[in-house]
Computed example of a mutant assay.
Amino acid sequence: MDKPFLTVAEAAEHLSVSPFTIRDWLRAGTLRSVRLGTKRCIRIQRGDLSRFISCRSRGGEDDAL
C-alpha cells in the first residue's frame, strides 16, 4: 500500500529533481504541502503531487495548484 504522504526527499526522487527544487516549488506555492506533527515536518500528499505532474505535463506551470 502506498503511503498517503511523501517527504520532500521522496517527492524529489519520484520527480528526478533535487530536494532543493521541491522546496523552491513549495515556497513559490507551485506545489502544495502540509506540516504534520509537533516538529511540523513538511509532507506532500500523493494527490497533490499527481495534480502537479499532470499540470506540468500539460505546460500549465502556474496552474499546478
Rank of each mutant, 00 (worst) to 15 (best):
D63W: 12
E10H: 02
T38C: 01
R43I: 06
P4G: 14
L26G: 14
T30D: 07
G29C: 01
L65W: 02
A28R: 14
S18M: 00
R46M: 12
L36M: 03
L31V: 02
K39R: 15
F20N: 12
L15K: 04
R23G: 06
E13Q: 10
D63E: 15
R27M: 09
L15E: 09
R43A: 02
A12M: 00
F5G: 00
D63P: 03
G60K: 13
T21F: 07
G59W: 12
P4F: 00
E10N: 00
S16N: 01
T30I: 05
L15I: 06
G29M: 09
I44S: 11
W25R: 05
G59D: 12
A28F: 10
V34S: 12
S54N: 15
E61S: 13
S54E: 10
V17C: 13
M1Y: 04
L49K: 01
A64V: 11
G47Y: 00
T38E: 13
R23C: 09
L49A: 01
K39L: 04
R43H: 01
R56C: 15
C41G: 13
W25E: 00
D62Q: 10
W25G: 01
A12I: 03
L31A: 07
L6Q: 06
R40M: 02
G29P: 01
R51T: 02
R56S: 15
G37K: 14
R46L: 08
R51G: 09
H14V: 13
R40V: 15
A28E: 07
R46S: 07
S57G: 02
R43E: 09
S50Q: 10
K3L: 13
C41R: 11
V17T: 03
I44W: 12
